[in-house]
Design a protein around this nucleic acid. Structure first.
Lengths: 204, 204
DNA sequence: GAGAATACATACTAGCCGGTATGTAACCTC
DNA sequence: GAGGTTACATACCGGCTAGTATGTATTCTC
């Protein structure tokens, strides 16, 4: 009896399972055996698709984590009013925040804190994700300043760094306290900050 | 020849070395052998003072990390103008932020992201540190509202959660990008937010 | 100063983990 | 359909790690 082979699917299943395993345990404590057990793939197949654990990790960052982050912010990139768009993204993200996400934290932040300081390959790839996100917000703000939906005296780069940092930080603190409420409170503070970026006297 | 024994000192040296090892590698990847090598203490001595690695980790959190955090925020607890005091703490913290701190990140945040979701003992202890910090800021804000140095319509708990979250988050993003500048930009955003909490028309 | 408790030191073990060597069956090319 | 390449499968290894068993010298108690 012939067994069908689907190399692309096998590879995809491996990086998706690895993403979850890394999300649960971090990269260094992630167990290849767990991933193999979870996917019913053998070690030979894993090492056919990836040179080593680190390369698997890089693939997870590039092929799962990166789109995961981009998808959540793409609406801000093209929005006419970036503040409205950002507030909407915050609401969306809070709605999709499951108990598991509070328990395990943001996959992006987790990996940054674990690996950025000790592995250049991770640092480069994670920094690319984070800085593209930051730049997307800064660009959106500048566009908002040009069309009058954002106050002109705000420093777009500084605000973007603050927005990204506070989102990840508030998620992290919610994880530390294992409490959704902390996330709500933090995000309400961020909403306050975003509102303060609107131009004064914009109404009537 | 008699060798002096100083059990308290031995214990102290162990938890301080463990603090650094955990800061560098995280708790789970922290190597007891490294700590023993660093301190010239033997495994027998280590296991005389601590039942296992986890108990050593708990001791590090309670006896090193907790005072480390408290010491950096105690001035806000008694300040008359909490916003001025908070801004000063931010400046102090940025001045003491070495390259190593950017590389390795905040020890508190690192441990929260690594352990809060998977070990109750860590979570309880880390949450205590974080929530005491948050409450200290919230209390200070309420005191500021009572004496007129903070605007009355601000939600003290929400703002405190946001302040703590954004500090840890901006440090985390600076680590992700391995770039001091990101920290400066984020903290300038936070300074802006803190200024917006002052009561309107407070001058002349 | 005897006896007990404390504070170590040394040597060892069991388990897990990433990685490799080798074999084999499916698939693609011509 | 032969030959080569791809996509797996199986079995094994060496290294590291937390933890333990056991021994011993110092210190405390009375």
């Amino acid at each position: 009896m012939s067994v069908k082979r689907q190399p692309d699917l096998t590879r995809q299943r491996l990086i998706e399972s690895a993403f979850e395993e890394i999300h649960r345990n971090g990269f260094r404590s992630a167990s290849l055996e767990s991933i193999l057990k979870d996917t019913n793939v053998t070690k030979g197949a894993l090492y056919h698709h990836f040179r080593n654990k680190t390369e698997l990790g890089y693939a997870v960052v590039e092929e799962v984590l990166k789109p995961w982050v981009e998808q959540r912010w793409k609406s801000v990139v093209t929005a006419e009013d970036p503040i409205d768009a950002a507030l909407q993204v915050l609401r969306d993200r809070m709605e999709e925040t499951t108990d598991e996400m509070i328990t395990l934290g943001c996959p992006l932040n987790n990996l940054c804190q674990e690996m950025a300081g000790i592995d250049e390959g991770f640092q480069k790839r994670l920094n690319q994700i984070v800085s593209e996100w930051r730049n997307a917000i800064a660009d959106a703000m500048r566009r908002g300043q040009a069309n009058g939906s954002v106050r002109a005296d705000a420093d777009a780069d500084g605000c973007a760094a603050f927005v990204v940092g506070s989102i990840e930080g508030c998620m992290g603190m919610a994880k530390a306290s294992q409490d959704h409420e902390i996330l709500y409170k933090g995000m309400s503070g961020l909403a306050l900050f975003l509102e303060s970026l609107r131009p004064p006297h914009s109404t009537h």
